[in-house]
Simulated assay, not measured.
Amino acid sequence: MKSIMFPPPPSSIYAPPMLVNCSGCRTPLQLPSGARSIRCALCQAVTHIADPRTAPPPPPSPSSASPQPPHIPAPLGQLPHPHGRKRAVICGISYRFSRHELKGCINDAKCMRHLLINKFKFSPDSILMLTEEETDPYRIPSKQNMRMALYWLVQGCTAGDSLVFHYSGHGSRQRNYNGDEVDGYDETLCPLDFETQGMIVDDEINATIVRPLPHGVKLHSIIDACHSGTVLDLPFLCRMNRAGQYVWEDHRPRSGLWKGTAGGEAISISGCDDDQTSADTSALSKITSTGAMTFCFIQAIERSAQGTTYGSLLNSMRTTIRNAGSDGGGGGGGGGGVVTTVLSMLLTGGSGIGGLRQEPQLTACQPFDVYAKPFTL
């Protein structure tokens, strides 16, 4: 199971960071208190912060001034270009060699990458992968690297862009003290180093990738973690029963704080409700361990040859998970496409967990007709 419940360290309580733009790639960077310079983890450029107590030197006279070469930003190396029409951050964390280890999360990340490239025509160069298998230290899913990746995802986005954030790993929740949560809890994601650096709270995720979205930009978040129902803090939740009937619940904070976008569209599909847990299991694929939600999400898309709506997608995912509890994991076979071609390439392993008790959730920045709106990335 992907649930960790214990009081977070004080550092995980979100406070708006002091940000400066990198002098090289313009990525927002969190400036440590008292620091006068900071190195960008993405492009390695060093940004110097002016000391307001120091007066600038007088300008040199024309006769003594020597021509200066123009500033050339440090190269981004193998990182994706941040201005593609479609781009994605995929994060899968297994917490290897720890008591929190999960078996299926890196499999989830690989399968999601395959789906985005082959089904939704994302360029491989526009997908930023964060897993423990990456050799680049800036692609290890630490708290700082995850923050940088989320900033990268929305950097410079313009109308027509399609953004995806997929996360498979541990999720948790903690008491909310500012009154902006309906249930009194903040939902969190757990980076690889969460035990020392703290968790990433839904307030920060919302401020980073939801509120900046301009008109015409579309963001989809696919979160396979415990307590993830409202982990993007979006204003509206689609409450659907087993018959497929639904109403939109208003989760806007009583304080009036706006948690929507700056005109763009944000939709989140999560593995379970805020008070539920998500399974890491081999009961569905029968081949290897995966997150139950990620498996059902990919399977629902692959089985819908003519496309699908958000309502049909959500119903299909929920039905597969319910059936896994009644027939020992039915729904894992016959999917074809990504489910068989990707998972069969991965190493087998993990332990099955029957009787799944989770219900995938849908949240959005604005209510819409879930059976009329086509799903597309």
Rank of each mutant, 00 (worst) to 15 (best):
F6T: 07
S11I: 07
I13P: 00
I38H: 03
T47W: 02
P56K: 15
P56Y: 03
P59I: 08
P62T: 01
S63P: 07
S64L: 14
H71Y: 12
P75L: 12
R85L: 15
I90Q: 00
S94A: 12
H100Q: 11
E101A: 15
M112W: 00
S142K: 04
Q144N: 14
N145P: 06
M146A: 13
C157I: 06
C157Q: 06
Q174T: 14
Y177W: 04
D180M: 07
Y185S: 13
E187H: 10
T188G: 04
E195R: 05
T196V: 06
V201L: 11
I209F: 06
H215Q: 14
H215L: 06
I222C: 05
D224Y: 04
L234R: 01
R242V: 04
R242E: 11
T261R: 04
G264A: 02
I267N: 06
I269T: 05
D273A: 12
D273E: 12
T277R: 12
T277G: 10
S278K: 02
S278C: 15
D280A: 15
S285A: 04
M293L: 11
M293H: 11
Q299V: 15
S304A: 14
S304C: 13
A305V: 12
Y310Q: 13
R318S: 06
G334T: 09
L346V: 02
G352L: 01
G352V: 05
G355I: 00
P367V: 03
D369E: 06
T376S: 08
